[in-house]
């Protein structure tokens, strides 16, 4: 089947199998390897991308389901002017270690901030609970996101 996706701001058309996963499409067909595979069950958040601004797990989403929609991956986000602010906060707080979860963490944070859903440390913890990180113990990420959201960590 043919799908048409606005991928990182650019309109792309591709022929794909109906059962083709968005994660495989991005990584293998489009060479966008910033989204990572881990749990395959929508628990860990390493494969998070934004579809029409909302975070989804690309490991459990079909390319067919994003036909006609906007997909933003970390590669696209990194090109946006607002990214610099996110980058600086994560660098300043050393809010990453191995980096495997980092793209998903940033994209989820962007979506929550865009929707103004980060008005307290409590909301940060709840909002990001769908993104696991095994290295940092979360503390540093809460600090970085709190700074971005302008709230107390």
């Amino acid at each position: 089947m043919t799908v048409e996706v606005r991928l990182n701001g650019e309109l792309v058309r591709d022929d794909v199998e109906p059962q083709h996963l968005l994660l495989d499409y991005l990584r293998e067909d489009r060479g966008l390897t910033g989204a990572k595979r881990s749990c395959d069950t929508q628990v860990c958040g390493t494969c998070t991308v934004l579809v029409d601004g909302a975070p989804v797990s690309a490991c459990c989403t079909l390319v067919a389901d994003v036909d006609g929609r906007e997909v933003l991956t970390i590669e696209g986000f990194a090109e946006l002017p607002e990214f610099e602010r996110f980058e600086q906060a994560f660098v300043d707080h050393a809010a990453l270690q191995c980096g495997f979860c980092t793209a998903g963490m940033l994209l989820t944070t962007k979506s929550l901030l865009d929707e103004r859903r980060l008005s307290s440390a409590e909301e940060i913890r709840q909002g990001l609970a769908g993104n696991l990180c095994r290295c940092t113990g979360y503390h540093a990420i809460v600090e970085a996101v709190a700074e971005l959201a302008g709230v107390e960590a």
């Binding site: 990584r27 996110f86 980058e87 300043d92 050393a94 990453l96 980096g99 793209a103």
Partner: peptide, 21 residues
């Protein structure tokens, strides 16, 4: 000194290469 991580930018921008890539 708490120098910023040397690998931070690559990792934040999704450019860092892992074996799966």
């Amino acid at each position: 000194h708490s120098a910023p991580r040397k690998d931070a930018k690559e990792k934040l921008r999704g450019e860092a290469e892992f074996v799966g890539d």
